[in-house]
């Protein structure tokens, strides 16, 4: 226990683009600590030489035929965005001038 500090929660939250502050930091640190302490039971399992499974089906490089077909209507899709500028998605400046 005690592996996850409030500082680590703050750092990981920033990586995930979320803000965690105040009492929530301590509470989440304690909860994540408890969960991670539980999942660390896995360390007791011998896994030397065992292939990892990321996916259960033996499917690789699945592709569709390279044939043109109608797409979703761009207008409908762009209309879903919270901010638009004509046919474009509008976002705050990405690069400083």
């Amino acid at each position: 226990m005690g592996v996850v500090t409030p500082e680590i929660v703050k750092h990981v939250a920033h990586l995930a683009r979320m803000r965690v502050e105040g009492e929530a930091l301590t509470q989440l640190a304690a909860q994540l600590d408890e969960i991670l302490d539980y999942v660390r039971k896995l360390q007791a399992v011998a896994t030397d030489g065992i292939e990892p499974t990321s996916h259960v089906l033996p499917l690789t490089n699945v592709q569709r035929p390279d044939a043109p077909r109608p797409s979703l209507d761009p207008g409908t899709v762009v209309a879903l965005a919270p901010a638009r500028s004509g046919p474009f998605l509008s976002v705050p400046k990405v690069l400083e001038a």
């Binding site: 990981v12 990586l15 995930a16 979320m18 989440l28 994540l32 999942v39 896995l42 399992v45």
Partner: peptide, 30 residues
């Protein structure tokens, strides 16, 4: 949702990947 995103980000982050995510994928094979 926040708790799970934090947990997932943590186990994938630099320095923890092998101990958590890789290990879990191996146990999944077992």
């Amino acid at each position: 949702a926040k708790r799970r995103i934090l947990l997932g980000t943590y186990v994938l982050s630099h320095g923890y990947y092998d101990a958590y995510y890789l290990k879990a994928m191996q146990v999944r094979t077992l």
